[in-house]
Measured scan of single mutants.
Amino acid sequence: MISNAKIARINELAAKAKAGVITEEEKAEQQKLRQEYLK
């Protein structure tokens, strides 16, 4: 099960992506976390 901290990070990265200020490194982290969440 995914931790609350990881869910919070997913939401934080989603907000950054929506604002258009996300880095390529953060995009990769976001994809990794989303895949983990979906498992």
Rank of each mutant, 00 (worst) to 15 (best):
A19T: 08
R9L: 04
A17T: 07
M1V: 12
Q31A: 14
A8P: 03
G20T: 03
E26Y: 00
I22E: 02
N4P: 15
A28G: 06
T23A: 01
Q30P: 00
A5R: 08
K18M: 12
K18W: 04
V21F: 07
E36Q: 05
E12K: 04
A15F: 05
I10W: 13
K39A: 15
E36F: 01
T23Q: 02
A5I: 12
I7H: 07
Y37K: 05
E26Q: 05
E24L: 08
E36M: 04
A15K: 12
K16R: 13
L33R: 03
E36L: 05
A5T: 12
L38C: 13
T23F: 00
Y37Q: 14
Q31W: 04
M1F: 11
E29K: 01
A19W: 05
K32A: 11
V21Y: 06
Y37H: 10
Q35R: 08
R9T: 02
A19R: 10
I7D: 04
I22C: 02
T23K: 03
A15S: 09
S3V: 07
M1S: 13
K18S: 09
E24R: 08
I7S: 07
M1R: 12
K27E: 12
K32Q: 13
K18G: 06
Q30H: 15
A15E: 12
E24K: 10
L13A: 01
I7R: 11
R9H: 02
A28Q: 12
K18N: 09
T23M: 02
K16D: 02
I22R: 01
E36Y: 02
K39N: 15
Q31C: 13
K18I: 12
G20K: 05
K6D: 08
R34A: 14
A5H: 09
E26S: 00
N11R: 14
E24H: 06
E36I: 03
A17C: 14
E25L: 10
E24A: 10
I2F: 05
E29T: 01
A5D: 13
E29R: 00
E24Y: 05
A17S: 10
K39R: 08
I2P: 14
E26I: 00
S3K: 10
I7V: 11
A15G: 07
E12T: 04
V21P: 05
A5S: 11
L13D: 01
G20Y: 00
I7E: 06
K39Y: 06
I22F: 03
Y37T: 09
G20N: 05
V21L: 12
S3D: 12
M1Y: 07
A8G: 07
A28S: 08
K32D: 07
N11F: 10
I22T: 02
N11P: 01
I7G: 05
A15N: 09
L38T: 09
K16W: 00
L13S: 01
I10A: 06
V21K: 13
M1W: 05
K39E: 15
R9Q: 03
N4F: 04
L38I: 10
I10M: 15
K27M: 13
K16F: 02
A15R: 11
I22D: 02
N4R: 12
L13T: 01
N4G: 13
E25I: 08
R34T: 15
I2K: 06
N4Q: 14
V21I: 14
V21S: 13
K39S: 14
S3P: 12
